[in-house]
């Protein structure tokens, strides 16, 4: 099978969908000839034209609302927000409109749209262009939240997101864009709400999202040398969340470490930890659940400070050993 980068996989999922379905179009800032802030839509305007690769003014409130209105009337828009931090400006339309319209209208109408947006730190973009705000969106009933970590997952999940009849927030981690994996050429769909066990293990369960999946796998490899077998689970979608896979894993290992880049305080890791504490896996816990998340600080510019603000491989290794009393 051929390899694609995560970025190419996202682009391929959109292109294939757009060839199949005339209702699908993309709108966003600088997505036309420029190809988008990270180059995801590069080349697409040449194939699909400016009608369907719609360059917008710098108006996150308008384009998010326009996507809602278009979705409500029969289109399947994909909205690209240049940085997930700009969600603040699109927030009203996603939270007060997209998420609630169907419910407020008693089940009439639907809002099939995807908001794609690059998130996360590691690029030196500092405080207003590096956040991971997915927990905000996961909090809102009516939205679905997807966070793929690999090229394969990105392609399959994006197709599922576009095909979904609900508003989906699709987080693309900037550092994942250049990662590669085997990606089938044909279109395929990965159901939303199905976690993936990225590595099987018996001693400790790590639940990690986005770039932290890669860091956790690195940590797991290191721990394997010391005879510690870590199971790494990527939930892939926060809403809906496949808690059952995590419960089963924790029942097996008795230990849970949750890792995300988003600030730990109020982060989605707290939700996972709580769900496990409430679940039947509780009686199998043989160590306190550990959460690793970003420090409660705006992402700083200096590269060393930036790295220190979010969990790294050694933090994960340490956390795993702590749960095993092996420090």
């Amino acid at each position: 099978m051929r390899e694609l980068t995560y970025l190419e996989a996202v682009r391929e999922a959109m292109s294939q969908e757009m060839r199949e379905n005339e209702d699908v179009f993309i709108l966003g800032e600088d997505i036309g000839v420029y190809g988008g802030a990270f180059g995801v839509t590069r080349g697409m305007i040449e194939e699909f034209g400016p009608e369907r690769i719609r360059n917008t003014p710098i108006s996150e409130a308008a384009i998010s609302g326009t996507a809602v209105g278009a979705a409500l009337t029969g289109m399947r828009p994909i909205l690209e927000l240049q940085f997930s931090d700009f969600m603040t400006i699109a927030m009203d339309n996603m939270v007060n409109q997209a998420a609630k319209i169907r419910y407020m209208y008693g089940g009439k109408g639907k809002v099939p749209m995807v908001l794609r947006t690059p998130a996360g730190s590691g690029t030196g973009a500092a405080a207003q262009h590096s956040q991971s705000l997915e927990a905000w969106m996961a909090h809102i009933p009516g939205l679905k939240v997807v966070q793929p970590s690999t090229a394969y997952d990105a392609k399959g999940l994006l197709k599922a997101a576009i095909d979904d009849d609900n508003p989906v927030i699709f987080y693309e981690h900037k550092l994942c864009y250049r990662t590669k994996s085997d990606v089938p050429e044909e279109a395929y769909s990965i159901p939303l709400g199905k976690a993936d066990i990225k590595k099987e293990g018996t001693d400790v369960t790590i639940v990690a999202t986005a770039i932290m999946v890669h860091k956790s796998l690195e940590a797991a490899e290191e721990l394997e040398k010391e005879g510690i077998h870590v199971e790494v689970i990527d939930p892939r979608t926060l809403v809906p969340l496949d808690i059952e896979t995590i419960v089963q894993s924790v029942k097996k290992t008795g230990r849970l470490v949750v890792v995300h880049e988003a600030v730990k305080r109020g982060g989605f890791g707290g939700e996972i930890a709580s769900l496990i504490a409430e679940s039947e896996a509780f009686d199998y816990l043989d160590a306190p659940i550990k959460r690793l998340g970003g420090k409660a600080v705006p992402i700083p510019y200096n590269p060393e400070l930036e790295k220190a603000a979010v969990p790294g491989v050694s933090d994960i290794v340490t956390a795993v050993k702590e749960t095993l009393n092996r420090l």
Binding site: D283, Y284, L285, A287
Partner: peptide, 14 residues
Amino acid sequence: EQPEKVRATPAARR
């Protein structure tokens, strides 16, 4: 003032 409780994990308790 309460009797000292045993510190044990849920799995140990089970």
